[in-house]
Nucleic acid binder design. Sequence first.
DNA 1: TTGTTAGCGTGTCAAATGACACATTTTTTT
DNA 2: AAAAAAATGTGTCATTTGACACGCTAACAA
Lengths: 191, 191
Amino acid sequence: MQMLYEYFKGFGNLPNDEMDFLLSQCTIKELKKGAVLISPNHHVDSIYFLESGYLHYYTHTELGERVTLKVVSPNICWTVLDSFMNQTPAEDECVALTDVRFCELKRRDYFAIKEKSKSLSDFINRIVEQILSLKVIEANNKSKMTVEERYVDLLQKNPEMIREVPVGIIASLIGTSRETLHRIRRRLTAA
Amino acid sequence: MQMLYEYFKGFGNLPNDEMDFLLSQCTIKELKKGAVLISPNHHVDSIYFLESGYLHYYTHTELGERVTLKVVSPNICWTVLDSFMNQTPAEDECVALTDVRFCELKRRDYFAIKEKSKSLSDFINRIVEQILSLKVIEANNKSKMTVEERYVDLLQKNPEMIREVPVGIIASLIGTSRETLHRIRRRLTAA
DNA sequence: TTGTTAGCGTGTCAAATGACACATTTTTTT
DNA sequence: AAAAAAATGTGTCATTTGACACGCTAACAA
């Protein structure tokens, strides 16, 4: 739980007892490589915080081609917010790319925390807003970068992910084909 | 203010006096075509609700090319959330594409509303979460659609925008060049 | 109302991309 | 340890795209 504690601390100070309460609502779990975390037509009922490993969140185009929407890395909170908030079934799928250790906060506990006190409610809201806001910034950056720039950016900000995740998945994440990403890598190593 | 009232009602019921208070914090304003709403290096200090007209929110690539991040249409709430929440200067720019009528909610009034009562605070949070959550879904859809699909999608969901906004800006919004969008339109009318 | 600017339509051409095919390596399973 | 499966590296080729160029029209400002 140490990692999650550090993560929470980054969002401002919280009285010790409230922080303890917050952490007490989270459970540590594990997934084996290849295990399914979220499957289509089921509700997403938790918020996840990764301690180690990688998750692959993806969807399919009309033609059945698989498209990566996100690779979830350690040290971030993540969920499918629309499904989580509105209890709608998720359309997409999430699978463990490696063995994974994570903390889970269940939906009912999330709402219980929000009811507990104003400071806890504000604290949690701040986290949710931050997560979403980052996602929006990320989407905007994606709009203004070329495929190559996105790759270089990822390489700088998350080299471990590049090492651990299959090339085809990275390619799909940055919006190109496996072959084109390969050309980019060749060019970059040549230089 | 009627439009904004209807918009708020879509987010659930609120006691009359609280709804009135909420609306009383918003001010109606206008912009002439070409007027700047947000300029780089200034804080975004309001949330906007468009009643009529279109806004162009864009950034620039490293090479100085202009990239459209969003065309703001009537009947939606919009702001640059990161700048608004964290008081950081906006990097990007927002300009009126047409004459625009909008409601403005200032930052300090936004926080005042949140302090007023738990129901108002929850109500506002729900709106912010909804706005952001929609943006995330939009970004994910963009990932799984081709340029042509995005255009057709826009055409169905917002034909008026296609009519009112210059082709080059629509092209940039869906991630392509003016010429390629032109080819797409030619193909579509031929069929 | 007239000159000026912004936006639109379209053709050509070089460059980038995706689809396919296949050999090679790495990983997983039996 | 062997066999099977998954992931990778790489070449060819047809297609798509972006960049440029130019004329035309609509909108706007002097």
